[in-house]
């Protein structure tokens, strides 16, 4: 598949990369329909955030169609149109259960670096450098979303794709969650 990769400070390139696969039971694979550019993408591109590596795929504000789900995914179905929060949250740790999703204990596979840098590791973030877990981003044809039941939200019928991907996408699930629960 094609993906937009970070090649160095202020250097980007479209590369052919392998397609993502289900690696954990709660993963979903999303075919990206729209992916927007966040202001913090510019920080990554310009080298202001540490721990970017050559070949990292950028992008964390996106929506698309679910094409594959892991065996433990219950709420999200193949074919759903979803908007996905950029912060990866497990939904089960103390932080997630007290709705502090950006501090999730279980979604950053390499937390020690950011613990030393900031005192506490943040949650993993899609397409947001190796300090935030080293996840591949959404400026690609497909993306793996861990804990899909927690981080992906189904878009209602009749809503245009581009409308739901308008920045900032992370605010959509943040607002949609409480609104739909009310």
């Amino acid at each position: 598949m094609k993906a937009l990769c970070w090649e160095g400070v202020r250097k980007l390139a479209v590369r052919d990369v392998p397609e993502p696969t289900i690696r954990a039971a709660g993963d979903i694979i999303v075919k990206v329909r729209a992916s927007s550019v966040c202001g913090s993408d510019l920080h990554l591109i310009n080298g202001y955030l540490p721990a970017m590596r050559e070949g990292d795929i950028l992008g964390h504000e996106f929506m698309g169609e679910v094409v594959e789900t892991g065996p433990d995914v219950r709420r999200i179905k193949i074919g759903d149109r979803v908007v996905v929060g950029s912060v990866v949250a497990c939904g089960a740790c103390w932080y997630c259960r007290t709705e502090q999703y950006s501090l999730c204990d279980n979604s950053n596979p390499q937390p020690v670096f950011s613990e030393k840098l900031w005192g506490h590791a943040p949650a993993g973030i899609l397409g947001y450098s190796h300090a935030a877990g080293g996840y591949s981003g959404s400026h690609a044809e497909y993306i793996r979303v861990p804990f899909g039941d927690v981080g992906a939200f189904t878009v209602p019928e009749g809503c245009r794709t581009t409308r739901w991907c308008s920045p900032p996408t992370p605010c959509r699930p943040a607002g949609w969650g409480p609104t739909s629960a009310a």
């Binding site: 709660g26 590596r53 996840y135």
Partner: peptide
């Protein structure tokens, strides 16, 4: 901890990227 709380352990090693084997 991750296994008990979520039943899974995440890993991002060798996720899709534009890296060559040497860069990986």
């Amino acid at each position: 901890k991750s296994l008990i709380e979520t039943g899974q352990v995440l890993d991002t090693r060798h996720d899709p990227s534009g890296r060559s084997p040497k860069q990986e």
